[in-house]
Design a protein around this nucleic acid. Sequence first.
DNA 1: TTGAAAGCGCTAACAA
DNA 2: TTGTTAGCGCTTTCAA
Lengths: 340, 340
Amino acid sequence: MPTIKDVAKKAGVSPSTVSRVVNNHPRISQETREEVLQAMDEIGYHPNVIAQNLVNQTTNTLGLVMAPSTEEAFADPFYAEVLRGIGSMAQKNGYSLLLITGDEEGGELEATLRAVRGKQVDGLLLLRAKKSDKLTDKLNEMNFPFVVVGRPEEEDKNYWVNNDNVQSSKELVEYLINLGHNKIGAFIGSEEYIVDQDRLKGYKLALKSHGIDYNQDYIVQIESGKQEKAYRFTKDLLNSYPELTALYGIDDRIAYGAIKAVKELGFKIPEDIAIVGFNNNPLSELIEPALTTVDINTYELGRKATSLLIQVITEQVTSYCNDIVPTDLIVRESCGGKND
Amino acid sequence: MPTIKDVAKKAGVSPSTVSRVVNNHPRISQETREEVLQAMDEIGYHPNVIAQNLVNQTTNTLGLVMAPSTEEAFADPFYAEVLRGIGSMAQKNGYSLLLITGDEEGGELEATLRAVRGKQVDGLLLLRAKKSDKLTDKLNEMNFPFVVVGRPEEEDKNYWVNNDNVQSSKELVEYLINLGHNKIGAFIGSEEYIVDQDRLKGYKLALKSHGIDYNQDYIVQIESGKQEKAYRFTKDLLNSYPELTALYGIDDRIAYGAIKAVKELGFKIPEDIAIVGFNNNPLSELIEPALTTVDINTYELGRKATSLLIQVITEQVTSYCNDIVPTDLIVRESCGGKND
DNA sequence: TTGAAAGCGCTAACAA
DNA sequence: TTGTTAGCGCTTTCAA
């Protein structure tokens, strides 16, 4: 592989001159520029990016931290969609993407620190924020640029991009309430995840603002995406609390499990039981009944997060800020009320 | 950020000694090793990976070439799943993953060459092979290590990992034939993609071996994943050829579109029309009726491809070879015949 | 406008 | 077992 020296020799100039034409340095004569370009072309020269990275102390690469494990990560359409957005924006700005995953629970912390300390990335995108996150603490301590996709615990000590989960969850539940439901079972994720807690908060707010008492018994904890569990839990829940007329799944896939269970129990959807989900999984319009859910605009989330990160890296933004991506209530058939 | 020199100074040794303990060089006394380790710890030293890469002329990074554009790529669960497999194997062997995508049609060629020439990756994984692929030609010319996921045109001039699409497609169609179908409409992708042509070949072989005439009119070209189109094309197809009793989608998502159309036309599945898909999309067991399809073991495909690539890079394998990952026919409800 | 020289942080002969 | 030295391929100051 030819180096900058080879080009220099061929063109009869110094390596620094070649470097200048490679980097479009302005103060260089048209003549030499052309000679050098020709020489580069003739011997098939391409700059060694690693060497550039070393001397420039920058890599034009963004790290993508997927929590908690690759295995789960890619199985979730949320990731696929947010990756689309990230990829599109990164590319547009000339950044590469380095995937960072951990092999075990929490393994991504080590992997991430290695990439950061090893100077392999200029900044990080953290997908899915945990409530107490050692990684964010550590990164802040190191003063390393990163953007959280989701709302971090310390809202004003981080850059982040998120949906307004509280508000959209509230709207979703109010939609149910307006349809006449006031006993609504809900499957919510672990306390560890902020998204889940935000959505639960929205649920509570909706009840409150309509003067409906919150009943802890109607809330079932579940890991997001665990359809099989949702299926079983739904049966348990409806057996224990036959007064329920609606079910709220923290994730569309949870709702699918619920739908299956409800049908098997012989109830009709939406006549006997209304069901809503969250995230607008592509399948939700195909399933029967088509699921009423919230579209969280995942693609846009990815784009905005990436754009913000690049601004942070290039110091176009210097004080903590965030961006809220709007959501859309997608009314389909699982609650009736299509005309609402 | 402390460098190797700082550690050397602190520990009272030379930089090369520090380098040796970092790299677990054997010939080093226990004493100095410990002193150095302690010094590293005290000043918080971590090797600069970029500098290591430059001097070692290797990056421990695999490039992932996603064709044709990020946007489409991540929307397909195939990618998500194959990424899982790749990620798992890469991690296990200490390799990082660099995502390479193009911003326009064919843009990934440029992006890939830049990464290769820039020495950013040690090898490449090409996802989804095109029939005439400039990239593979170019890479072979440069003698750069890569593995194709899918079957490349020149089978014995590349390393590749694939499913036996011809055979599994044949089995799928034979399954339909055994159920009594002999007029089977099929939605197949562009001629450009080898996967699609292989599956079409399997379709033809199945008919032939059962003495059924092949009817070109029953074959509709479609881009894989285009559910909306499949929906429209299905209506057209069934209107034009009411004699059809079964539909074959090159991709489960195509089948979803077909299912929707068939239902709307008032036909029953599987009683009036049987439907099969391909790829075993996670949604296929949820849709109604649950879709009979072929599981292509995408995760394993990713793992095997990565493993092979690493072998090629480390020169454990030096002559062209390939690996076939077995598929499984997944019989669900969309054709009846559950007991077959 | 161009070149010489130093240096980014690391590794590896070679010598001691 | 350890240190000295050169060099990976590039950029950039400084001087011309």
